[in-house]
Design a protein around this nucleic acid. Structure first.
Lengths: 130, 130, 130, 130
DNA sequence: GTGGTCTAGACCACC
DNA sequence: GTGGTCTAGACCACT
């Protein structure tokens, strides 16, 4: 699994890590039950401090994306992913709203925007079917 | 124009301000050329620091959403909104990607997601036609 | 609010902090909306690293005991405490079971045990009524 | 005797083992003098490391719950259980306090809490009378 | 060797 | 001045 970090980004590194791993799961490159590198290994591989990786893993664990198994180490949650809760939908709504609003201001039509979202969705999931 | 701030949110207040004003423009509640409250007034109205409002206005000016006249004060940009640049599309893509990926992980179908985005789009623009 | 830490205990310092603050709330010494010391102040007061205090605060925030207000700093959650969820009852059950089992082994009667629990309950809440 | 371990739990496996065996004794499923599986057998049965089982047995022996004979192997202590010492009561108090405090915060009444403890007590001891 | 905990010290974003 | 983030380095508990 390839991790790409942007050290200049204002998005915290641990957040970028969380995003990349979630995208890895969404794309099927990371499968349920599959082991993830240890905190220390991943940290040295991508050249960040182990605490940064640790924070990312902790957040992923809290949300149910991964498990910290006392023997196998860190693995992608083997029994499916966290469900679509009401909290999640609210969070998603609050994240999407400013993006949609800005798109409207700049004159993107509804179809333009939907096509963009669809394109992203398909790009992520396409590797799944291969 | 009503501004709603969440002091507990992890989104900075100035960012919340920017979002709310952009959404106000997108929804048509704020029209091109319409005056906005002065930094000082808005700050005291919503109970935040002057710097916070100032930073929000500065960002909005940089992106071309508002103009700051020496005399007329702050107004919504009268000559249309900033265009859909390539930079904007890239930024939008990077913002949408983790949201879409998380939706996929949790089992939202493409249609579910598109319907959500469409719903937000319509909710924001509906007041426009009235 | 007096914090007592046992540096020799095998209970992590941040956990001891969480316990003490929860007990402070339970006893009424910490009231809803009341401000808590800043991470740095508390850390220097009790002689531990600020990260340790930070972790305790983060956990308390996650469980809804405190709020991190962008202006007022850290305060005891003003609108009542987290509810008795099913998750909480399960966690409580799993914590109590080994304690009860050990008490049984050592020959404590049911009444002995209940009296002990009642005594603790009253000791914590007594200051409330004063 | 069935042992149930949770590899995801933050409770160490050896502690879970100690708890389960103590609960086995408390419930009467393990009777004084009854033999326990050897370190080696138990370890392979439940799929954990030898050291882990060994540590659990060592702790149980220290507290007087089991005896380790050179020949007979490991047996539940035949001559009654460890007594209710002052040290034990203090330890119990320190374990119960944060649990009780959290229950109070979340609005459990004294009777709710006592009923929960009583329920656990009876659930463990009920098999004894059969 | 693994994750968990703690420390020390630094920089930045926010207010 | 506040919390948030990141680094570096250390020790320990667990397996």
């Amino acid at each position: 699994m390839i991790i790409e970090l942007d050290m200049q980004s204002d998005v915290p590194i641990y957040t970028q890590l969380v995003h990349q791993i979630i995208e890895g799961i969404a794309s099927g490159r990371l499968k349920p039950g599959e082991p993830l590198p240890s905190v220390r290994n991943l940290a040295s591989d991508i050249g960040v401090n182990l605490h940064t990786v640790n924070k990312a893993y902790t957040l992923l664990k809290q949300d149910g994306y991964i498990q910290v198994h006392r023997q196998k180490g860190v693995v992608v949650h083997p029994e499916g992913m966290p469900p679509v809760t009401e909290d999640f939908l609210n969070k998603q709504l609050e994240e999407l709203r400013p993006i949609v609003a800005e798109a409207i201001c700049r004159g993107m039509t509804k179809d333009d925007l939907l096509k963009t979202v669809e394109h992203i969705y398909l790009k992520i999931t396409q590797t799944r079917k291969e």
